[in-house]
Structures are given as C-alpha cells and as structure tokens.
Design a protein around this nucleic acid. Structure first.
Length: 480
RNA sequence: CGGGGUGUAGCGCAGUUUGGCAAGCGCACCUGCUUUGGGAGCAGGGGGUCGGAGGUUCAAGUCCUCUCACCCCGACCA
C-alpha cells in the first residue's frame, strides 16, 4: 500500500508543515478552536496528555524540595510597574481588568502574564530572616498574554504552565537553583517527552525581562525551526530590590534576597507534535501517552462473541501495567480504527480476530514502526513492557539523530544565509558578543541566537558577521 | 500591527463573474439489511437561510458599506 494513502485528512507534513500541524491537533482530538480569539479548548485527550506531563514534571519539582502553591490571577498595575525592565517587556501583551461588576476599578488589574510581581510582593512579607530562606515554591496556573498571532499550543492568548519562584540567601545558591532546574527540565523533556534539547544561556537581548541571566532549553522541530521548550532565570537581586525582599543574615546585616524563576508550558505539547509526528499524525512517547495500547477486535458473525471475550481478557491482563482501550465500536471497520488510533498517536495497537484466537496469539503493531508482528498470548505482557521502553528510546534516538544531522558549524556568512534559507536547523557559529551583529543577522536571516553553550570553548574563531575574534561559539536558529 | 486569502449543513467544497423563482455535492449523522484482518456496500432519511449588521432592489449566497473570525507570509513575543 502507498504510504501516503493511509490518512487523507491530514495535510502533507513535507509540503505544508503548518497546515499539517493544525490538522494533527484537530484530528488527534487534542484541542479545538473556540469563540474567543486565540483561546483554544484543550479536549479530554489533549488534557490527559497534559496531565501526564504535569505529573512527570511535578514529581521532579517536588523531589527537589519545592512545594506547590497558588497565587492570584490579578496583579495590580502598581505592582507590575515596580520592576522597570520587567513591565517594559510585558506591557504590550498584558490584558487589563478595568471594571468589576458595574463599578470602574480605582486601579486596573493585570491578568497575570507571569507572576514575578505578585509573588515578589508576598515574598517581601514572608521573608525576614536568613532562617526563612530558601523559599522554594512552584505554581501550576493559567497565564494570559495578548498575542497578535496565535497557534494552538505554541502560542495562545491563554495558556497553562508551571512557574517556580524561589528566594535564596546568596547569589551562589540562586545560581545553583537556576542550574538545578535547568537540569530537571532537561531530564524531563528528554526522558519523558523524548525530545532532545540543546541547553545554554540566552543572549542579553533574548533573556527574560528583568532577569540577570536566563538559561534555556531549545529543541529542533520537524520543519527545521527551533522551539524554546523551557527557561530558568536567575533574577539576581533585581526583583528583590524592586519588591523589597530583605532579610537579616547571620551577622545581623540586612541583605536583599537572590531570586529565581522558571517555567514550562502547554507549548511543550506542540513540541511533542512537531518533533515526533509524521504523515499519519501524532506519535506519543509512552511515558506521557494517555493511552498505551488500543485493542481492535476483528469481528465476524460467528466468532464475534468469542473474539470480544478474548479481547476483554487481554484488556484486563494489560491494564495491570498500561492504559488500555478496547475499541469494540460496531459502526467502524477495523481499517478505519487503525487509521484513527494512528492519528491519535497511541504507541501500540493490538489486533485480535478469529485466526489469532485459533493460534493463541495477537497481531501487534508499534506506532513508531508500523509493521505487524505476531505475539504469543503467553508473551504478551512482557513483550508490551519491553516495547514501551523501546518505543520511548526509539522516539528519542530518532529525534536525536535528526538534531545531530541538523547542527551545522559555519564560518562563512554567505553559507550561513544559505543554510538558514534552505535547511534551517541549528547553526553553530562564532559571535563577538555585539548586539549589533545579532540584530543584523536576524534581519538578514530571521535567525536569532537560541543559546550560548555552557561549556567553556577554548578555541577562538571569527564572528560570523563582523569577523572580530571571539571564543564564543553559539547556536543560531529560526525560532517559533 | 502590515500584506494576501477564506467564511455556504458537523467537516470539506461548488454556486457569487452576469441578482431570478427548489441552496447543491462528497464525507459524517439517523433507519434497515448485508458487512468487518488497512478509512465497507446498497436502499431510505434528517439537517443549512449562505460569518454578522446595515443598505440597494419587485427579488440578494450573488451587488454596496461596515464589522467579526480563521488561515498563510512578515514585524513582536513562551
């Protein structure tokens, strides 16, 4: 059978990537548009995926001593304004509440675009002594940013995320926290979402508004563009000074606290789609897939009940370890179901019909491979356990080879432009550190500095734009 | 926010150029029978007032004005 004939409802990934993306979101039943501009509804299947993602990350956050809390969605304008660089950065995309009921508000309230301000104001109340530190809080919340161009999951007016906010006694502790979170994010995104990332530091122009510096995780998408999958900010004492977060240290001296903040969002769902998806639709890593196994019974008149009974037995057996669905709908043919579950990215499909019954076996198909394999009934559970691990690894390895193939070292600006125009991906090139060069490159190629690697580069080279000598070898790419 | 495009049944579209008397097609949906190992077949059936508002006209899906939404390409951002 012709590969492209499997699913006709999804645009070609090769030819129309953004349409393909939208189609997958809708056909896999992850989300839908609503009457509110830029606001999507996350449908049960998509939300189950998000819940699994939340769970994976939440465990890691808690295991490192952080606690969850919830802060208000409304932030008085006066608070938001306290950190100048911060408010300047967010002002263009803040939604304001100016009226409550029939009454105009004395002071307008921002619908949180991020919570540094409100949390900072409370930390100021809560922190008095070095004994109060560190304070390690995370919140799962919705965020509103008035975006001009929106796309499901990747950029929506309202989105869901987690944001961690911590305060520490020393600069070093805050820096350790920032890096610890970066490592947690990397572990989570690579191990659970099977998305390989490049980590590093943001350039000054790309860092978080108000931060001292920002660490980031950057991932390659199926169209060669780069998605920022998470950030971890060392806020220095900027916010502590703006929000008056002070404490008395062991020497009875008054100090400003050192704070951090860090976040990942529902945007990662978009990342999963764009990294793992193929012409047939979604492909979900088992660790976060809402459904691990779907069983499709093959009905014929005489054997129908027998097949169904067996399928139910398998479901019970496999449910010990996995989320399993038995698709016993009568009004769809097996072929139709195969396509639907493939679109939805379920890692493994089992087919069971009269022939299998006779041989005590099932037909099994991995979403990442596609070929049919016979498995003896007695081997089913252990095989599935092995497969899930394999699929998880395979998705990661495939994504990693694509990433590696798409990191190109470049020393010649014309070649740089050519690569960005044709292949995209990451370009590793020397940069002198001058914002002018960064800006010019962006204007010419739409590529920005995605990150500056953390490991010290000893070799010197020439800035890709101006030719000045530099030891800073950075990653460029076109970002989402 | 600039340039382009699209809004007609749940989805995908035709019809709009040249206004005209019954608003159509495919898929989906409902009923029945036959089917079911890669999106089943036949027969019958239900559903839209043409994105919204205003206007022109004997008559508007079709012409005019305004407006909204979505998509694509840019500028701005997680």
């Amino acid at each position: 059978m012709n590969e492209t004939e499997f699913v006709k409802e999804i645009a070609s990934k090769e030819e129309a990537f953004s349409q393909w993306y939208i189609d997958v979101v809708k056909k896999a039943d992850l989300a839908d548009y609503t009457v509110v501009k830029g606001c999507m509804v996350i449908k049960p299947y998509g939300y189950a995926l998000w819940e699994n993602m939340q769970h994976c990350l939440d465990q890691r956050i808690k295991a490192t001593g952080h606690k969850n809390a919830y802060f208000p969605i409304f932030i008085p304008e006066s608070l938001l304004k306290k950190e100048a660089e911060h408010v300047a950065g967010f002002a263009p995309e803040v939604a304001w509440v100016t009226q409550g009921g029939n009454q105009k508000l004395e002071e307008r309230l921002a619908v949180r675009p991020t919570s540094e301000a409100i949390i900072g104001s409370l930390y100021s109340k809560w922190i008095h002594s070095w004994r109060d530190l560190p304070i390690l809080i995370n919140q799962w919340a919705n965020i509103v940013r008035w975006e001009k161009v929106t796309r499901p999951f990747l950029r929506t007016t309202e989105f869901l995320w987690q944001e961690g906010h911590t305060a520490h006694q020393t600069q070093q502790e805050a820096e350790e926290e920032t890096l610890k979170i970066l490592a947690i994010y990397k572990d989570y995104i690579e191990k659970d979402l099977a998305i390989p990332v490049i980590i590093g530091k943001k350039s000054n122009t790309e860092k978080f508004a108000g931060a001292m510096h920002t660490y980031t995780l950057e991932a390659l998408m199926g169209d060669g563009k780069i998605l920022q999958t998470g950030t971890s900010h060392n806020l220095g004492q900027n916010f502590a000074k703006a929000f008056d977060i002070r404490f008395l240290d062991e020497n009875q001296e008054e100090q400003f606290a050192w704070t951090t903040s860090w976040g990942t969002s529902t945007r990662l769902v978009g990342g999963i789609i764009m990294v793992h998806g193929d012409e047939r639709g979604l492909k979900l890593p088992p660790k976060v897939a809402p459904l691990h196994i779907v069983i499709v019974p093959i009905f014929f008149d005489q054997s129908k009940q027998e097949v169904l009974n067996k399928a139910q037995q398998y479901k019970i057996l496999l449910s010990e370890k996995f989320n399993v669905e038995l698709d016993d709908r009568d009004n769809y043919t097996p072929g139709w179901k195969f396509n639907e579950w493939e679109m939805k990215g379920v890692p493994v499909r089992l087919e069971i019909g009269p022939r299998d019954l006779a041989h005590n076996q099932v037909v099994a198909v991995r979403r990442d491979k596609g070929n049919k394999v016979m498995i003896a009934e007695s081997e089913l559970l252990p095989t599935m356990e092995r497969w899930m691990t394999d699929i998880q690894n395979n998705l990661y390895m495939q994504a990693r080879s694509r990433l590696e193939e798409n990191i190109r070292f470049c020393e010649n600006y014309d070649q740089f432009k050519e690569i960005m125009a044709e292949k995209r991906g990451f370009i590793k090139a020397y940069w002198c550190g001058n914002e002018k060069c960064e800006e010019e490159i962006k204007r010419d190629t739409k590529a920005t500095i995605r990150c500056i690697p953390l490991d010290e580069n000893k070799e010197k080279g020439k800035c890709i734009f101006c030719g000045a000598e530099s030891s800073s070898l950075v990653f460029f790419g076109r970002a989402y």
